[in-house]
Every structure is written in C-alpha cells, then in structure tokens.
Design a protein around this nucleic acid. Structure first.
Lengths: 342, 342
DNA sequence: AAAATCTTTTCAAGTACTTGACAAACGACT
DNA sequence: AGTCGTTTGTCAAGTACTTGAAAAGATTTT
C-alpha cells in the first residue's frame, strides 16, 4: 500500500504538500494538485485509518459483544446496527460472549487495544457478574445495552416494552375467550422477568387464576421442547400457552403437533419477538412484534450520539413499543370461539 | 487511555524504558520493571493496536463481506470463522454486500483504509461483475471465497461438494422408489448450478426422465412459495421435490400443507444445507448436510495461513463433503414404499 | 585514583499523516 | 531597487511505540 511519502517522492514534492493536495487544502498550484491526485489514483492510495486514530484519538469503530451469529434476533438487530453505523462511517468489531464470557477482562482488553470508541452489548446468556459491571464502568467510552437491562449497571439501554407487549397480548387472548392461560418463561434475563410480569399482572387484573403447574420456567433452551411436551401431556394443560420467545413457541407448536393436539382449537400458542420465521410456521404464529431491526438502529444511534457528543445527558432508557400480531396459532375459528362475557 | 510516555513520566523514566519493562526485554532493573508494571496496571494501560499496525504493517484483522446477518447459513459460518479468528488473535470487520454491492470500490476502499490483512467473501446475491473481480485482484492481500465460486476469479475457495451431495441424495430417493422427481433450483450462483447438475446427472445415470415443468428456476427467493405452490397445484407435480436450500424446502412444505397434500405420502420434500431449523420442521426435513460451521473454520484458517505465510502455493480449492440426512419429509412409511426393481 | 567492565537508561529514527509556522519566489507599485 | 502582498511549497512537531546504538551510572579491577 502506497504512502503519501512515496507519492511525494514520485512527484518530487514534500509529503505535506501531498497531504494538502489530496485533502483539498488551499495553497497548492492546480497543476501540482492534479498531478498528485493522478499518481494517488494510479497506485491506489488509501489513507491509513490507524494514523487518523492516533491523531484524533478516535478510531471510528465500535465494539459489539453478542452471544453468537446464529440467533435470528441477534442477526436482525445487527443488521439494524450496521445500517446506522454505515450511515455514520463507522465500522465494528464483533466478539461473541459465548466465547469470552468467562474472561470478561480479556474481551474488554481486546476492545481497548483496538481503541474502539464505544461498546454495544447484546444480552448475555447468564446474568452479568458485578465484577464485570465494575470493569465496564472503568471503561472510558460510552456503553449501550440492547434488549437486556443489567441490575446495578448504570448504562444506556435500548429495549422493548416487554411488560406492555405481553399485557396487550394477554388482553387480546382474554377478549377471545381464553381463560386457562399458561406461560413458558425464561428467568434470569430482564426481558424474561418483564414478560412474565406482564402476563401475571394482566391475569390478576382480570381476576383469572394462574395454575402454578402451567407456569413453566425454562433455564436451558435445549430443554424447552421436552418440558413443554410434559406440560401439554399432563392434566394442567392450559387453553393457551404464552411463550417467552418464538423459539419456545416453535417447540410448543411441535410438541402439540407431536401429541396430536390441534392448534389453536385444543391449544393456542403465542411467541414473542415476531421473528421473520413466525410467518413461515404452520399454523402462522401469533407473536409480539419487537421492531428488532429498529432496536438495533436506535441502539447504534444512541451510542454514536454519545460518542460524538450529541447526547450528553444522564443515562437514557429507550423503550420501543411491542405490539401483538395475532395469527392462526391463537385465532379460533368462529365455530370454536370461546368468547364469553367478562 | 494512558500511554507509555505518561507511564514514563509518572515513574520518572523514559518511555523506551517503559516499553522494555512491559515487554519483558532484558537490561532493566527488577525494581524498575515492577514499578512500571504496577503503574500500568493501576491506570489500566493497554497497548495501542494502531501503532503495532503501523510498525509491522499488519493489523491482525480481516475484512468480511456477507449479505446480511439474518441468514442462518451466514450466521453459522460466521461463528466458525470467528472461532478460528479468535484462536489466532485476529478480529474482523464485517460489511454487508446488500448495502454496498452497488459500490464495490467503496467497500474495498473501507477495508483498505482499515488495512485489513485479508478478505473473506461470502456469496453475493447477484453474480459478481468482472470489474469487481479485477478490483479484488488489485487488492494486495489474500482473498478467500466461501461457498460461492466466481467465474473468472482466481481466488482461494472453500465450499461444499454440492454436486456429489445432491447426487447422493437423488440416489437415495431413487432407491426408495421415487421416479418422478422435480427440483427447485437457484441459478446464477455456483452452488445452485452444481446442485442442479448433480440432480440432472444422476437422473440421467438411472435413465429417469426429467419433466421440464417440474424443474423450477427461482431467481428471487421471495417468489419461491408462490412458484412452488403453482407447480404443486398443476399437472406436473412430481413425487419428490428437491429444493436448492432449506428455505425453498420450507416453502415447499408449506405449499404442500396449504394445498392439503401429505408429506411425504403425496410429495417428498428435501432441502440442502441442513440448517439447524431443519430438525424443527414438521415433518422433519430431509436435507444435505454441509458442515457449515466447519466451512467457516476452514475458510478462516486458509485465509490466516495465507496471511501468515504458512500457505504459499497456487490457488486452493477446499471442498468439504456434503452428506444427505434422510428425515421424515422424504421417508415413506413402509406401507407406502414405492420400492421397485431398477 | 584511574581504567575497565558491567548494568541500566536514554536517544534517535522510523511507521503515516496533519497542522501551523515559515521561507522562497513572484509581480506590482513606489 | 526596495517594499508589499500573494502564491506555493518546506519544515518541524506531534500522535504511540519499538529498536539498536550510545551514553550515563555503578561497580570492580589494576
């Protein structure tokens, strides 16, 4: 890769003159400027981003930590994040939590050595430890959390109205006549707790009992199918099962199908997140739309606003609305409608 | 972020002494060294990766271009790529083709300014233009293609045995008694052509006719469901439909279901790729396993081998085996078995 | 005490680039 | 010819760090 110094040597002028020529600064003869530009193009000159970083103290890059690249939620949000980053001329380094969650210091160290201008943190598989939070506070640059709130961590946050979205969903199901409603929860992460609360609050609001046996806590996503199937095969089977996310809902649909249950006649199933595949499922999955792409965009935007000093106030919490999308998996045919007066 | 110069000032010594102390070089009093290390730890010193790049000419980072982060194939492969990158202490910049495919020069320019040590290119949505290939050849650092071969481009390549995998699948279906076999192809990308050839060759080998009407070319993935449904609703409906990938297969399953067809009794459906969701579909989807994670690992490994000079030979083509995984979507119950003598 | 030896630290240069100060060269005017 | 302003280009410093040579300091030997 050719440098300004070499271009200067080729043109027979000082490198600082080359700098002025290429950056459109005044004080350069048009003839000299054109010649420099010509040579630069010929040899494919590209300015060295490292130098810019050393001079300005800004790398125009951010660090992203996410669980892995396979999760559709992560993928969709990352697309949103990169949409915004690209607009602002930023690039990103992505490191996976599942690879470095054990060695939090190593993760931060790598980002620090790269001199990233800020951090964007996706949900962790396990709740973050206090020592990790302390290390992040010691990190000089802005930090934005996406989708998962950290207890005790005073960071900017962009997430969904999990409680409100779930509450709205429960209300819709109740208005359709469902009464025996169960839920598959994912404790430990903030979004799981919020969705569970939205469910419980709304059931309480309408004086509907919640059978403890139909409140399923999943701690390891790999166990979801088996646990849900056990629930559906037993006496406590509800009329509707509200799942923490669309994956659990897929497992619920499959478990129901494998048990010979009809969805939604024997069991209504709902997810959360409204991931792209929800529409591809049969029956089409009812879910709560989270505007995931926008979640990514807003998180990146907030981070860049902090970095560039457009946002200087106290910690922000941006909450996007979450709206239920009713599809076949919870939509009873008229003939089956359980609607009754409340 | 504290620098060596500042540490030197704090300790009352020259920055070059700090450098020697922190890098374990000889000629430093133990007392001085310990004091430097102590101060460095106290202020959270981290070496500046930019400087290392300027001195060595290596950034220990690579550039990755992929369509988007939502595609499960991309996600799984990216996980493999990052697994290997992490082992070797490399980081990556990811830029999306779908954002910059129009402005190929801008994409390369951004990678060049960041001084990435090499490029890893995922499949493009559209076949790459010759001018793009020329620009890549002008790029001084190693380039590795993953999953998609570029006509006219002499690049390293890591992909699957698409033809062999498809041929093996067809043979298995034929041995089960299927005769009227159709295919949903994706022309334009090399993997699509190879899978199609594997299908046609094997049908020819067993003297089985291929009905042109049941050879469906999909150019835009969004049209897949509608086109497949048209095929299945018409006279040319085959006994088995071999799809280019698991997404088309999902569309085929849905189209069959929506038309009231039983799978696999009325129609067998197969995919390609064996993405994680293939097992979650009902019926479980027969697919051809591509070892996608390993594909990513090998591609990254090859790129790093080129960068670090462990691999210096001519262009390499690494082909991983592709093996059919027969599941319910193509497994006829015994009572329906169409097996006949060939 | 001076010289020799060894240890420890500093110096200078190099990586790519920007920036403001400064110096030539030029023509116009007195 | 000398002064002035303008144009055009050079110089030096600064960003963080490494490297080998040189210098300084400490210790030992003569």
């Amino acid at each position: 890769m050719i440098s300004m110094k070499e271009i200067g040597r080729i043109c027979g002028i000082a490198e600082s003159t080359v700098s002025k020529a290429l950056n459109g600064r005044p004080g350069i003869k048009a003839e000299t400027r054109n010649r420099v530009i010509e040579v630069a193009a010929k040899y494919g000159y590209q300015p060295n981003a490292m130098v810019e970083c050393m001079q300005t103290g800004r790398s125009r890059s951010i660090g992203i930590a996410c669980n892995n690249f396979q999760d559709p939620f992560t993928g969709l949000a990352l697309d949103g994040v990169h949409e915004t980053l690209h607009q602002f001329g930023y690039d990103s380094y992505v490191i996976r939590w599942d690879k470095l969650v054990e060695d939090h210091a190593e993760l931060l160290s790598r980002f620090a050595r790269r001199r990233v201008d800020g951090l964007l943190l996706f949900p962790t598989a396990r709740p973050p430890e206090q020592s990790h939070i302390a290390q992040l506070h010691a990190f000089h640059n802005p930090v934005v959390l996406i989708d998962q709130l950290w207890r005790g961590g005073e960071f900017d946050y962009v997430g969904s109205d999990n409680r409100g979205g779930m509450a709205a969903l429960v209300e819709l199901l109740i208005s359709q006549g469902f009464r025996k409603i169960g839920a598959v929860t994912y404790p430990g992460v903030s979004s799981g707790e919020e969705r569970k609360q939205g469910f419980l609050d709304t059931m309480f609001k309408y004086n509907l009992p919640v059978d403890a046996r139909s409140l399923l806590e999943i701690r390891d996503a790999r166990e979801a199918y088996v646990e849900i199937r056990k629930l559906l095969a037993g006496d406590a089977r509800p009329e509707a099962l509200l799942c923490f996310n669309d994956f659990f809902a897929t497992d619920a649909l499959n478990a129901a199908l494998d048990l010979g249950l009809r969805v939604p006649e024997d069991l209504a199933v709902t997810g959360f997140g409204n991931l792209p595949f929800a529409e591809k499922l049969r029956p089409h999955l009812t879910s709560v739309d989270q505007r995931i792409f926008e979640l990514g965009e807003r998180a990146a935007r907030l981070l860049l606003d902090r970095i560039d000093g457009r946002e200087t106030g106290p910690r922000r919490r941006i909450i996007l609305p979450a709206t239920p999308v009713i599809r076949d998996s919870s939509r009873l045919p008229l003939i089956h409608n359980r609607r009754t007066a409340l």
